[in-house]
Amino acid sequence: MKVTLKIWRQPDAASKGAMHTYELDGVSSDMSFLEMLDVLNEDLIAKGEDPVAFDSDCREGICGMCGLMINGQAHGPEVTTTCQLHMRSFKDGDEIVIEPWRSDAFPVIKDLVVDRSAFDRIIQAGGYISVNTGSAPEAHSVPVPRDDAIRAFNVATCIGCGACVAACPNGSASLFMGAKITHLGELPQGQPERDTRVVGMVAQHDAEGFGGCTNIGECTAACPKEIPLDVISRLNWDLHAALRHGR
C-alpha cells in the first residue's frame, strides 16, 4: 500500500523544525510502524537525504524507548507502543501525521527524538526503596498479601515511555509518578519512605516544568500499559498524608 507521511523534521534542539511530507510506496501491512519508517529511511539514504531520527530499542513493547505522536494520538491508534503498532492499522492512501512528544520538560533532540531524562530525575527524587545490597532480610520474612502484590505488579509495568505526558493537555506526568508511588506504596517494604518519596517526587516533577493534573484522563487512554487513573488518586492521597505529617 501507499501512504503519505507528514513528519516533524528538526535538525537539532536549537533549530526550528517544520513538517515535511514524504510519499512511501510498497508498504506491507505486516510491517510494524517503525519498520515502515526504516523503509522510508533506506529510501532517504539512497536519495542522499538525512534519514528521520526516531528512538526505539527493544521493539517488543517493553523498554519504553519508542514513542511517537501518530495522527494526534500518542503511540497511534491502538492501545500499545509505537513499536508494536503495525501497518495493518492503516489503509492504502492514508495520510499519517507523525510528531515527537510535545512537552517542554521533554525537549526535542532531533526530529522525533526527545530527551526524557526528567523521568530519571523524578525517580532519583525518591522512586526507590532504600536497601543496601546485602542487607536484605530473608525474602519470606515479610509475607505480602497476594492481592497487594498483584496490584503492585499491575502498575509496576509502567515502561516510562512518556505517552501520558504527551497526551495530557496539561503536560502532566502524574500517571507516571502515580504508578511508581502506587507500586512501592502497595508493598510493606515501601512503607517507611512513603512520605518522603511522594514529596520528593512531586517536587521534582514540578521543578521539571510538568503541568498539574486536572484528572481528565487522556493519560490512561494513551498509556500502552493501561495504567489506571487510580494511581493518581493514590498519589494525591499520599501527598495529603505527607502534608498531615508535616512534610
Binding site: 526503596i129 536497601v131 498479601p145 502484590a149 507500586h183
Partner: peptide, 22 residues
C-alpha cells in the same frame, strides 16, 4: 538465594501464593 532476598526488599513484585509467600 541472596538475589531473591535483595530484590524482594527493593520492592520487586514477584508472583505470590495466597499465603503471601513467593
Amino acid at each position: 538465594t541472596n538475589i531473591i532476598d535483595q530484590c524482594v526488599a527493593q520492592g520487586v513484585p514477584f508472583a505470590r501464593e495466597y499465603g503471601g509467600l513467593l
